[in-house]
Design a protein around this nucleic acid. Structure first.
Length: 422
DNA sequence: TCTGGGGTCCTAGGACCC
DNA sequence: TCTGGGGTCCTAGGACCC
């Protein structure tokens, strides 16, 4: 049976959310800004037409805002998350299975549906009526083709586009699309394809998969195969357990004062602990990092990180906050006297299921790991008076001593040599 | 002056063991 | 002092996504 995958994409999602509560925003050029109102993260179609590009810093469009040509809004992620959940729930019943791919997109499996177009027109109408969010729907035999179809759908009155089955009709559609539209083809990929004189999606689909495999491995190969209608990416139902959890922010200005850094880092650690607990995850290690303003010519890529390994995986707020706080104080010292920080973050890694941990805590594996790690921690603190571990690989600004060696959280044997340098 | 945040997957090659 | 290869695990970093 021919696979039929639909990709439902909310149009200008953040802008559409804001428009629900502010009718004056309808038919206007509207953008939503990132944290600290730093740059543009969503644009209405009127704003795209001007054009306002995705990701441009706010100061570059300030004139447009001041002259009333564009309305700029701060973001409200709580609202967007709530509306997203309603959209996804509404759509779930229209396919035999659903993969929520991002805050504003999901895939539905329509295989076996005799009238997929009608089904999706009904789905869009329901989302618009019940939640108030406009959507576009693309349908195709693979995820990659469905995504391309949804781009075409944005320009159609019905808001639904079905990719033709492989053959001349499909070739005609793909021949009109630039290769940059393809899911998985980013800037680096595009640069190579240009040198191969690959311009349209059709050009790419006609490349021998083996050639892509040699240059880009399985990732590139899958892109080509999916364009030919061969499914390489299956639907993933239900949220997969997280591999890492990040909480990070840019500051509105550079921060040099330790109390400010500690306050920020503690709140990141608290939030990370909450995220971990809500997903039933526990961290085997936590990294804290600081970085300087990457746009300043005198301090490119300057920053550092420390990683702390827990004897037993944890998601307790005090444990995470304490570990992060100790590392931030140390990072601040390492950055003295000129350290000025624009961004900081906390990363939970080595995540495990915290319900399984409860039962395996007394199991052999966990006990062996706990014993091994605590021995190494004891040794480290005896010799160096600290248990914070250096893993910074970019402590390279002119006033900082580069850190030699690396630390891998699982490799207890190497910790000591890293600590000696740090 | 002002430039987001949160993820995933893949690979080369090092580390380690036998 | 000189000598080997296979298998597996692990990490950093690149590339991409929204």
């Amino acid at each position: 049976m021919l696979r039929q995958i639909a990709l439902i994409d909310c149009n200008s999602f953040y802008v559409s959310c804001e428009r629900l509560f502010e009718p004056r925003l309808r038919s206007k050029a509207v953008v939503v800004l990132s944290n600290n109102d730093g740059c543009v993260v969503a644009r209405s179609k009127e704003a795209k037409r001007i054009p306002v590009e995705m990701g441009v810093p706010f100061f570059e469009i300030k004139d447009l805002v001041e002259t009333g040509k564009v309305i700029a809004l701060s973001s409200n992620y709580t609202l967007y998350g709530d509306l997203s959940a309603r959209v996804m729930t509404t759509l779930a019943g229209f396919g035999r299975s659903q993969e929520v791919y991002s805050i504003d997109e999901c895939f539905l499996d329509l295989t076996g549906d005799p009238k997929p177009t009608e089904t999706m027109i009904a789905a869009r109408c329901r989302v618009l009526r019940d939640v108030g969010i406009p959507t576009s729907v693309g349908i195709g035999p693979t995820k990659t083709l469905a995504k391309l179809a949804s781009e075409i759908a944005k320009g159609l009155p019905a808001g639904v586009f079905v990719m033709p089955p492989p053959g001349p009709a499909l070739a005609e559609v793909l021949g009109k699309l630039p290769v940059a539209e393809v899911w998985g083809v980013g800037p680096a990929f595009q640069a190579t394809l240009r040198t191969w004189n690959i311009k349209t999606v059709l050009d790419l689909a006609r490349l021998p998969p083996e050639r892509m495999q040699r240059k880009y491995g399985v990732v590139g190969e899958r892109v080509v195969r999916e364009l030919r209608g061969e499914a390489c990416h299956l639907l993933v139902e239900g949220p997969e357990p997280k591999q890492t959890i990040t909480v990070s922010r840019s500051f509105s200005r550079d921060i040099a004062a330790l109390p400010d850094l500690r306050a920020a880092a503690s709140s990141f650690a608290e939030r990370a602990a909450e995220k971990a607990r809500s997903g039933h995850r526990a961290a085997g290690a936590v990294t804290a990092w600081l970085s300087a303003n990457r746009f300043k010519a005198d301090a490119p890529d300057c920053g550092g990180s420390l990683t702390h390994v827990f004897p037993v995986a944890t998601n307790s707020t005090p444990e995470l906050v304490n570990a992060v706080d100790a590392m931030v104080r140390r990072l601040w010292e390492l950055g003295q006297p000129e350290g000025r920080w624009k961004k900081a973050g906390v990363l939970l890694l080595d995540l495990v299921d915290d319900r399984a941990r409860q039962t395996s805590l007394f199991g052999e594996v966990e006990r062996e790991r706990a014993g091994r790690i605590s021995t190494a921690l004891d040794e480290a603190s005896r010799r160096f008076g600290t248990t914070a571990l250096c893993s910074g690989t970019r402590l390279l600004s002119k006033n900082w001593k580069p850190l030699a060696g690396r630390c891998s959280p699982r490799r207890t044997t190497r910790w000591n040599e890293v600590l000696e340098v740090g």
